[in-house]
Computed example of a mutant assay.
Amino acid sequence: MSWFVEGIHPEIRQSIRRDQVLFEGKTDFQQVEIFANDLLGRVLVLDDAVQITEHDEEIYSESITHVPLLSHPDPKSVLIIGAGDGTVLREVLKHKTVQQVTMVELDGVLVQVCRDHLATLLDGAYDDPRLNFIIGDGAEYLSSSQNQYDIIIIDSTDPDDNSTSLFTDNFYQSCKGRLAEGGVMVAQAGCPSYQPSILKHMHERMLSLFGFGGFYHAAIPTYVGGLHAFAWASDRSDLSKLAEQDDPGFRKAEFPTRYYSDRMHKASFYLEPAKA
């Protein structure tokens, strides 16, 4: 038994007990660790930063997925960039309207490690015939592709050496160019309390390109700091207005969820981030 320590902020750290180490190794891109904790279940760590735990991964995966997809009247094509653990893919595939999912993940070794050690979370997602899985750089794929998508989900790590290209003006312009008419883009935007610079960056660089845009939030215990933010943008749909309507302007989920609900969808737009 040992303790994993994550430096969330220069002045803040969290510790999680390693009850059993299941995998530890380095890929071409990052250090990967999966360990078990009696309370949190299996924990995925990339470059000393916790990504998901079995205990609450559904809060993140269902929030980043179902809010945009159910805000679209008929999403058929979805692009996921990142999300190598497979939980976001699992949630996207629950939507019967979706005919094809293209997923671009830089680290193919990470995907295999997650398939080996987090299989109980994935529900066979990587074997779904609707999936077009590409190992490569998401920014390069977008700049070279001519495909159009109803939904684009950016599930990147926080800005680092491997994800810098996903936080540039060119990348956001490419996303805008690849969205079909009425399409919606969503990206994880960090913790408003401890990472306000990420929200500021996305507000100035990503949201400014679209007719509508903003943030919605979820409280995820694994991510210390309170709320976690998701940035959304669209040239046609105002997701926040759809959520405000008494008769919801978004579709109802026709599949089981553990966290997502109509009430949660509405509430996620009402939660205000901490002031920078």
Rank of each mutant, 00 (worst) to 15 (best):
V5W: 00
E6G: 07
G7R: 04
G7K: 13
G7H: 12
H9C: 02
R13G: 00
T27I: 07
E33Q: 15
I34S: 08
F35P: 05
R42S: 13
D47V: 06
D47H: 07
D48M: 09
A49L: 10
V50D: 11
V50F: 06
D56P: 02
H66W: 07
L70R: 03
S71A: 10
K76I: 09
V78E: 01
I80D: 01
A83Q: 01
G84M: 10
T87G: 10
L89M: 02
L89R: 02
R90F: 01
K96D: 15
K96L: 12
Q99N: 11
Q100T: 13
V104L: 06
V104H: 07
V109C: 02
L118I: 06
L118H: 04
T120I: 07
T120G: 09
T120F: 05
L122C: 08
G124Y: 10
A125F: 03
N132I: 08
F133V: 07
E140F: 00
S143K: 15
I151H: 06
I154N: 14
I154M: 11
D158H: 04
T164R: 14
L166F: 09
T168D: 13
G177Q: 14
A180N: 15
A187P: 01
A187K: 09
Q188D: 00
G190H: 03
P196W: 02
I198W: 10
E204M: 00
M206A: 12
L207T: 07
L209Q: 15
F210L: 11
G211C: 13
G213L: 01
F215V: 02
Y216T: 03
Y223L: 11
L227F: 11
A229G: 01
F230I: 02
D235S: 03
R236W: 11
L242C: 09
A243N: 05
F250Y: 11
K252G: 14
A253H: 06
T257D: 03
Y270S: 15
L271E: 12
A274Q: 11
K275M: 15
